[in-house]
């Protein structure tokens, strides 16, 4: 199960590393989103920590959705999905492998985007690094999980590209709320200690359970 998922994740990462376009597109997109949101808030860097936190999380979620549009594209093109469905593996491995790859992309994007965000908005006295990194990792798990699940559901839809953001964004609102609140905490505001981080972990667990329970029905006819 884990072996099959890792094999699938590895192939998807290899494919993206060879083509590069998607990763570069996501990097440019997240940079553009941060800049646009910044100017949309009238370019006022004094808008404060809360505005900076919101900017980061909005940019991450929209960039993730952009990346999700390509999930399963390689499988869809060559009919690989049939081969994966017929392979003697748990169907959950297909979804888990894809989610792992998606998680990998998000981490790569954030490795670039977060330092840039930091440099643009804070001179020296930024939020607590550990909390932000932990919040991002926990949120990435949830985004990758729910995103892959939605992408699988939208497979075969006539208007897949329009449909996918509509499916994913409402499901990710709790992640945004948890992530933003955790980031406020990283700025030293009182958010009830580790509660936002705990919430993000709980969200991941709930959707892992739901995805696991439905995975046999997720793909195929």
């Amino acid at each position: 199960m884990i072996g099959a998922a890792l094999a699938i994740a590895r192939v998807k990462l290899v494919l993206e590393i060879r083509r590069r376009e998607v990763i570069f597109a996501m990097l440019l997109f997240i940079a553009a989103t941060i800049v646009i949101v910044h100017f949309a808030l009238s370019g006022d860097t004094g808008a404060g920590n809360r505005a900076a936190a919101g900017m980061l999380w909005a940019a991450i979620v929209f960039t993730a959705v952009l990346g999700l549009l390509r999930t399963f594209a390689a499988e869809h093109e060559g009919g690989v999905l049939d081969a994966l469905l017929l392979a003697p593996i748990d169907r959950a491995a297909i979804w888990l492998g894809t989610a792992l790859a998606q998680f990998g992309f998000l981490v790569v994007i954030e490795l670039v985007a977060v330092p840039v965000w930091w440099a643009l908005f804070f001179q020296g006295d930024g939020p607590s690094v550990g909390t932000v990194v932990l919040a991002l990792l926990l949120a990435d798990i949830g985004i990758a999980l729910v995103g892959t699940l939605s992408a699988a559901l939208a497979l075969g839809a006539r208007t897949r590209d329009v449909l996918l953001p509509v499916l994913v964004l409402p499901l990710l609102i709790p992640v945004i709320l948890g992530g933003v609140t955790a980031t406020y905490g990283a700025f030293g505001e009182d958010v009830g200690g580790l509660r936002p981080l705990g919430f993000l972990a709980l969200y991941d667990l709930v959707f892992i359970a739901l995805a696991w329970g439905t995975s046999e029905h997720l793909l195929g006819d």
Binding site: G3, I8, R19, E77, G78, V80, D82, P88
Partner: peptide
């Protein structure tokens, strides 16, 4: 399922991988 093979209209191969990598993945799964 381990004993079934199906080849349809689509080649069921990853276009960005080599021939050998495609077979390796298949055997691995």
């Amino acid at each position: 399922r381990a004993g079934i093979a199906y080849a349809g209209h689509a080649p069921q191969l990853y276009r960005g991988l080599t021939a050998r990598e495609n077979l390796d993945l298949h055997l691995r799964l």
